[in-house]
Simulated assay, not measured.
Amino acid sequence: MSTAFTTRTLEITTGTTETVADLTTDCATFLQEVADGRDGLLNIFVPHATAGIALLETGAGSDEDLLAALHDLLPADNRWRHRHGTPGHGRDHVLPALVPPHATLPVISGRLALGTWQSICLVDTNVDNPERTVRLSFLG
């Protein structure tokens, strides 16, 4: 069996508010173009110190619930030692320890093998950096 590795970057504008951005369609489109019906793995990576990748249900309130939970766990106040940018920005640098900057997902016959309600999301609480890069890599 031959294997191929293909990678592409997405440029995502998250804006000036905390965001959960659904990347599922972008990931599926990438696989349609490169997977050619093969089984393999899709890796999603955000090369930023203040953003992460999460699998969750979107559109039913879970995205807002996640942001609310992160506010409870990581308040945007001046308790953080990391102090530059918007007040409380130090919390954004702790985020990737809770919402990792990567996910690796199975691809079966060229398609994402997600559960019924799972979506691939970029989680960005950093309001100081509205432009994000996400790297998609397929190995199959």
Rank of each mutant, 00 (worst) to 15 (best):
H102V: 02
V46W: 01
G59S: 10
V46Q: 00
D26K: 02
A60P: 08
T3N: 15
E64Y: 05
L41G: 08
H89G: 06
L122C: 01
V20A: 02
F30C: 05
P96C: 04
P96H: 05
D36C: 10
D65G: 09
D124F: 00
L42D: 05
P100Y: 03
A21N: 06
H84L: 12
L10N: 01
A35H: 08
P96D: 03
I12H: 00
S109E: 14
W80F: 13
L41M: 13
T104V: 11
A68F: 05
G37S: 05
A97Q: 09
A76Q: 08
V20M: 02
T14E: 00
L114D: 05
T25L: 05
L67R: 03
P101A: 11
A51T: 02
A113V: 03
D26H: 08
G110M: 03
L56G: 10
H82D: 13
A4P: 15
L112K: 02
L105Y: 11
T16L: 09
V34F: 08
G115M: 06
L73H: 06
L67D: 04
G110C: 06
A113F: 07
D77A: 05
P87S: 12
L98E: 06
L67C: 03
D22H: 04
A103N: 09
E64I: 06
G61W: 08
D39C: 04
P100F: 04
A28R: 09
T86G: 09
A69M: 14
F5Q: 15
G115Y: 07
